[in-house]
Design a protein around this nucleic acid. Sequence first.
DNA 1: ATTATCTATAGATCTATAGATAATGC
DNA 2: ATTATCTATAGATCTATAGATAATGC
Lengths: 178, 178
Amino acid sequence: MIDAAERLFRARGYSNVTMRDIALEVGIRQASLYYHFESKEQLYVAVTELEFEHHQKGLQHAIEQDNLRTQLIEAATWFLSQRPVHLLSMLHTDMPCLSEENLKKLSASSHRCIFVPIQEMFERAQKKGEIRQVRSNVLAGFFLSVMESIPLVVAGKELAPELVVNEMIDVIFNGLKP
Amino acid sequence: MIDAAERLFRARGYSNVTMRDIALEVGIRQASLYYHFESKEQLYVAVTELEFEHHQKGLQHAIEQDNLRTQLIEAATWFLSQRPVHLLSMLHTDMPCLSEENLKKLSASSHRCIFVPIQEMFERAQKKGEIRQVRSNVLAGFFLSVMESIPLVVAGKELAPELVVNEMIDVIFNGLKP
DNA sequence: ATTATCTATAGATCTATAGATAATGC
DNA sequence: ATTATCTATAGATCTATAGATAATGC
């Protein structure tokens, strides 16, 4: 049930999924969903929060690596192994449909579970002298937005996502200079 | 009218804007919109296509620069001077609400007007030996997705977008190596 | 005569609630 | 007795159409 809702919300966005769509996927009637969740909004918030925490756990393995390059590759591998989060779409299109309170809750959640772990990878690498000083929040946004764009860049071509990730991480480290 | 629709669609997405919202913004009644546009979908397509062509024109100035670094800075400056396109959200959340035909039309439009111009900047720079060989479509996706994320990274902080752009372009050229 | 608006409303959804019903566990 | 479903439906939108009306241009 949570899983069906997650799949649909992530694929189409909050407003483009109806309670009927979710019920159909689960194999029950639309009204029956209200026995488990008090509203569509609450269902969305519950599902999305679990998803964020799931990613936080999934990123642990990447964090445990001992150098930034391996950390980023593992983080990218993790994201590619999961359903796309479409974080930018979520923040831009879905969140404003929610109540002020839920918006704050989910924004904080996405920040804590996804943004901060990546940001801290960069910060630790800077402290160890692995990379030079660039605002760590810029780098985290940079990395995450590029992750979001991979499905799009790959779409249509016979191009392996892992290959794109490698090329991308290589650019982050070595730049484009010849 | 086109402008009001564009502002609303871009700010909230196709499904979260009603014809009533647009009419209210314009100062007429909802039904009156149907004198000018045969449907909500057609209005969205018209508005969005104009927007893409507007960006194509705006990117011309960047293309005319004689080295990649200046081209990217001018392109970034252009995007920051305009309402955010939220291209990723559009492609992911809005487009699937349209008919097959309109979806193809707008996908092609966004590719031709926005993606290709950036991609060609990278390709020309590679031919001139300014940068090393990395798949140009990966680089274009890379650059555009990072542009999309800037409003988000900047949000809340007292951080100038231009500063973020500079840091970002510097990373693209020189990498993060110390 | 044409153009651009308006009012009114049909028809389709969508969320959410009320109350009935069947199955399960004590 | 509790749990999880169901049917039915109220109430709120939303898109789009029909037909009336006012203003403009010949």
